[in-house]
Amino acid sequence: MTKQTVLELTVKNHPGVMSHVCGLFSRRAYNVEGIACMPVNGGGTSKIWLLLNVEKRLDQMVKQADKLEDVTGVERHDGGHEVFDKMAEFVR
């Protein structure tokens, strides 16, 4: 099986953010396997979790994501993230 990882992005919460983040991957033909997004507390910021296959270009993608004005933090979870374990139950 392809090795997977999860990127956890902290972002400013407004309607264009998803388009910025997803566009970063789609225009490089980098497949996003899974995606989850929820506002944090008051809703000024959100968390986006991206489930990705580990490719050679991943480091470049992390740097590009980090450059986005609306992205305030990027964390990489190579051991996976439970948000996707829970979501997986809905697609069984």
């Binding site: 309607p15 264009g16 388009s19 566009g23 225009r27 986005l68 004005e69 609306d70």
Partner: peptide, 14 residues
Amino acid sequence: TYGLTVPITKHNYL
């Protein structure tokens, strides 16, 4: 305009 300019700007606003 916002959608069209996402990939060609450093940042954009609506």
